[in-house]
Structure formats: structure tokens, C-alpha cells
Design a protein around this nucleic acid. Sequence first.
DNA 1: TATTTAATTAAGTGTATACTTAATTAGATT
DNA 2: AATCTAATTAAGTATACACTTAATTAAATA
Lengths: 144, 144
Amino acid sequence: MEITKILKAMADDTRFRILILLLQHNYCVRALSRKLELSESAISQHIKVLREAGLLIGVKKGYYMHYDVDRSTLHKLSSKIEELAAIEREVCNPENAGCESFERKMCHIQKSGYKCSNEVKTFHSENREEGCVDNHGNCGCRKS
Amino acid sequence: MEITKILKAMADDTRFRILILLLQHNYCVRALSRKLELSESAISQHIKVLREAGLLIGVKKGYYMHYDVDRSTLHKLSSKIEELAAIEREVCNPENAGCESFERKMCHIQKSGYKCSNEVKTFHSENREEGCVDNHGNCGCRKS
DNA sequence: TATTTAATTAAGTGTATACTTAATTAGATT
DNA sequence: AATCTAATTAAGTATACACTTAATTAAATA
């Protein structure tokens, strides 16, 4: 499941409306094209995007295509977003960033009175040194 | 809460990555720009989109902007998507579409043996008559 | 087999958007 | 007050994309 692909498919206003209409009824392409006042071609292209994102399942019945929303994709998407919301933030501070003691004293997110040294400022502004893996960005703190 | 605005903000791969990074740490713009190998300007513009969608809250601290993901927006989005998945579909058939009895007999989604009349075909293909509110699209069925 | 029909694909166009570098802004620091 | 500095905005560009009409496809029907 490609989450940004699904999000992209749903993010367009027209496609979002198509999705809602197809959640409510089994409209054919022509009916959707009338309801949304767009060409059948446009609808067909939107449906393709929704289908390729896993949001629609299409079955041909007689002359008509019957499209149905794959609700399991919506459930999975919803869960994924909940998972995101559950990510815990590791706040940058000298203690958890693995800063050297001399840096710790100078970190600007420390209480007032402490100021960043030139070394720390440089670290923040210029390219990072060898062996420096991460830069939390609020100061010169390094993560290991 | 504009759902397609939020979806659009999250649908871009770069913005999605920014969101995840900011869920994990309090990176500044420069740190994000290094991590994602994009200009600070590009990051700033992406952050603006995320902020205007209600996904980020920014606070200025010293020289730095501290951005935090508004997790409540993610929760609300997740719920909205669950609501969508819960929409029940009213299947189009002559009975629930309020079709006239003569139409009911001719609806193509009836069992085989019944065929659409020219009138019904025309109704489906041409513009709808006066007073016809809905067209479910699988046949000539009218809704009220 | 030829015809009809809903849907799709092809080709083209105008707008939106994701980036760039350069200029500007807001607010700490000296 | 003058100077830094992170972030933002301005201006410009190249690509993506949402539409159009016309041509094509695939399946049902005659």
C-alpha cells in the first residue's frame, strides 16, 4: 500500500466527490459525468487513478462497468494515519542528542545565560563533520 | 477542517517526509533542507502548505522556528476516512430507485429476459427529462 | 458477422505546483 | 543603533496534471 499514492488519489476534489458518490450508489461513468458536469473521458481518467491507488474495484456487467469502493483500503489508510499520530517525538536537547559536555553547556535551547559557541554555530551553519550522523537543528547538538 | 486540503498537503512525497521527520524530532528548516537535500526555501514553502492545512504549529524560539505536528488534525483526518468507509451503499435497482412499473420490467439489471426499452435507453443516453432528479446509471431507472 | 454501446485511450492545452536563486523580513545579538 | 541570522517571500522555470475532443477498444446484441 503506497500511502502517498492513495492520498494523492483522494486529494483531488473531483476524485473525492466521485469516491463519495460511489460509496453511496453504483453509478456508471456516464451518470458520474452528468452529476459532476465533466466529460466521460475525464471521469474515466479519474476512475483510473482511484483504481490504481486501490480505492476502486471495477467489474464489467453487460454494457456497464460497476465500480465499487474498496473500503478495506480506506480502513488501512485510516490506520496508517493513526500510526503516524502515535509516533513519539524525541525532543532535541543536549542530553538525548549525545552532545559532548562542552556542547551541552552551550546549547541555545538550554536556559538563558548559555550561548552557542562559535564551534557549535559553525557546526550548525556549515556542512557537518565526519562521523556526525544527525543534526537536530535547534542547536549544534549532534546525535552520536 | 478541509479534508481535501489536508489530503493534498500530505499527498506530496516531500511533505510527507517532512511530516514524519517533524513527528520524530524538532528539526529546524536548515536541518530539514539538509536531510532532504532541498533548498531551505523549498522546505519553507512546503512547511507553509502543511501549516495552512492545520498539520503544523510553529513557534519562534530564538533564531529558530520550532514546528510541531498537530496530532489532533491527524486524528480527525483518520476519523473522517473511517466515516467514509462506513457510508452504506444503496444499490441501484428498480425498487429503490422509484422507477415506474413499466420501467421496472425493462431494467437491464433485472434478471435476463428483460431488456431496456428504447425509451429507457434514450433516457439513459440523452439528457434527462424535466423533473427527473437522479440517474443511477446502470439502467434508465429514475430516482423520484 | 456486422453493429451498437459504454468505457477507455490518444493527443493536445492551459493551469497548478514543486523546485531554483535572489531579495526581503523579523527578531536576536553586539 | 547596527549587524547577524533563520526563515520567508519574490520571481522565474520546468514538470505534473486536470481537463477537452477525437479515435479506439471490448463486449453485447441483431
